[in-house]
């Protein structure tokens, strides 16, 4: 038994026929070929698979594609401008060395993009609370913290 799933991904209308048990993370990666969304744990702990659904960050490994039908999804591939210019959050991570291997980065970028929309000038504590659900095995988080503050500056300058 399969289901026709129609949704918007990075501004583009997409459809695919999938079984009900297809996780949104696998739907994005396998059915739509958008491998920017990473999968680390599949039980909600690591945060690598975080995408934006109707603007809010959610775990794509803890949602079925059939539940996401009709919604608006943004993945890491959708953060840059159409001409490829990286978003302020992406540039800040690059400038401040907010990544090393990059495995966790798609999840951080989506989480931080939403965090700064909600709270354009977060304190250190607010940043730590905001990213507490994303694990990074490389950076030790200090440069990620710096990246978030730098992204806040860039967003401010470009507003």
């Amino acid at each position: 038994m399969t289901h026709e799933v129609a949704l918007t991904v990075n501004g583009v209308h997409r459809t695919a026929r999938v079984p009900a048990r297809r996780l949104l993370s696998d739907f994005l990666r396998h059915d739509l070929g958008l491998t920017g969304t990473h999968v680390g744990c599949e039980h909600g702990v690591c945060g690598c698979c975080t995408v934006l659904m109707d603007g809010e960050p959610v775990r794509s490994c803890l949602m079925f594609a059939v539940t996401a039908a009709g919604h608006d999804i943004v993945t890491v591939e959708g953060l840059a401008a159409p001409d490829g210019t990286m978003s302020p959050v992406q540039r800040a991570f690059q400038e401040c060395h907010g990544l090393q291997c990059g495995f966790c980065t798609p999840g951080f970028l989506c989480t931080v993009t939403a965090l700064l929309k909600d709270n354009p000038r977060p304190t250190d504590d607010e940043v730590l609370e905001g990213i507490s659900g994303n694990l990074c095995r490389c950076t030790g988080y200090q440069n990620i913290l710096k990246s978030v503050h730098r992204a806040a500056d860039l967003l401010d300058e470009e507003a």
């Binding site: 975080t50 960050p57 905001g130 507490s132």
Partner: peptide, 9 residues
């Protein structure tokens, strides 16, 4: 309860 991203759902 968990983290903000989990609380969104």
């Amino acid at each position: 309860v968990a983290h903000p991203v989990i609380r969104n759902r």
